[in-house]
């Protein structure tokens, strides 16, 4: 398993992936398990009323933009899972790993030993990047499979392709922030800084996107938020769309190239 930086990174994170994966499965199981109760016409009416009584801004801040829709299968899964909780879990994982792979090793001083070997700095960055991507997509895969199972068992009438598209978009978005963390770590060698910047950007991105439905002047800025693309064209209803893949994919790849350039030219672990 310890053949190169790519496989070593994945091997090291195997337990972490297991625990975070279990977290996703638990979350999905609990929330899907509550769906039949929510779907009951009486409850759903009460809930809708209660929700309508709340300030729209507050609901938007929690990722709920369409109250009437919250009791449909797609609306429920979007609002309760993809709107906040699932991205949160996956992003904690990707930002943590993104800041760890280069900056973390540099601060721990293990990077010196790696650099003394016949490996290009660009190889170190790209292999770390590949490991981060594979792990983020694995989290998306776990999300997809556990959702699909729940949806099939409860006959919620959402296709595997739609669930797959939503899970894929979410992991791409989380990978986007992981890539930003990796980029800042590669550029500065400071783990806490890279984690903080990526987290702050994620928080801003989240609020800009979710509050844009109630605050007009945020609408043009919304398109700068990765969260906008994760939910672009409602993947749970319409399936895969090329645009999120293109936009988020480009940001991720650009972060990779920038990380290589900046890491190659600086002093390591001064």
């Amino acid at each position: 398993m310890l053949r190169n930086i790519f496989s070593k990174t994945i091997y090291e994170r195997r337990r972490s992936l297991l625990w975070w994966g279990l977290g996703i499965i638990t979350l999905v199981t609990v929330l899907i398990g509550f769906y039949p109760a929510m779907n009951n016409p009486e409850t759903s009416e009460q809930l809708t009323k209660a929700m309508e009584a709340m300030p729209k801004e507050m609901l938007a801040a929690f990722g709920v933009t369409d109250v009437a829709n919250l009791t449909t299968p797609a609306g429920y899964i979007q609002g309760r899972l993809f709107g906040f909780m699932l991205p949160l879990i996956v992003m904690i994982f990707t930002i943590g790993l993104g800041s760890r792979v280069i900056a973390g090793e540099e601060e721990a001083r293990t990077l010196d030993l790696i650099l003394a070997h016949p490996i290009r700095r660009s190889t170190i960055v790209w292999q770390s990047f590949a490991a981060l991507s594979v792990l983020a997509l694995a989290m998306g895969l776990i999300t997809w499979l556990s959702l699909w199972l729940g949806v099939v068992l409860l006959d919620m009438q959402i296709g595997a392709a739609e669930l797959g598209a939503a899970s894929f978009n979410m992991s791409l978005m989380a990978l986007c922030f992981g890539a930003i963390a990796l980029l800042i770590g590669a550029a500065t060698g400071k783990r806490a800084l890279s984690m903080a910047v990526a987290t702050i950007l994620a928080v801003i991105g989240y609020f800009v996107n979710s509050l844009a439905s109630v605050i007009d002047w945020l609408v043009p800025l919304q398109k700068l938020s990765p969260f906008y693309y994760a939910d672009y064209n409602q993947p749970l209803k319409h399936g895969f769309h090329y645009l999120p893949f293109l936009v988020l994919g480009s940001v991720i790849v650009l972060c990779g190239f920038a990380a290589v350039k900046l890491f190659e030219r600086r002093d390591v672990a001064v």
């Binding site: 310890l2 090291e12 001083r109 293990t110 010196d112 030993l113 790696i114 003394a116 490996i119």
Partner: peptide, 25 residues
């Protein structure tokens, strides 16, 4: 190269670590 301030992967065994570095080399 042997660093002056030697830090290695704490969770790996000596054998795993050396195997990893052997692969890199």
């Amino acid at each position: 190269y042997l660093p002056g301030e030697l830090v290695m992967y704490e969770k790996m065994t000596g054998s795993e670590m050396l195997h990893y570095f052997a692969q890199l080399r």
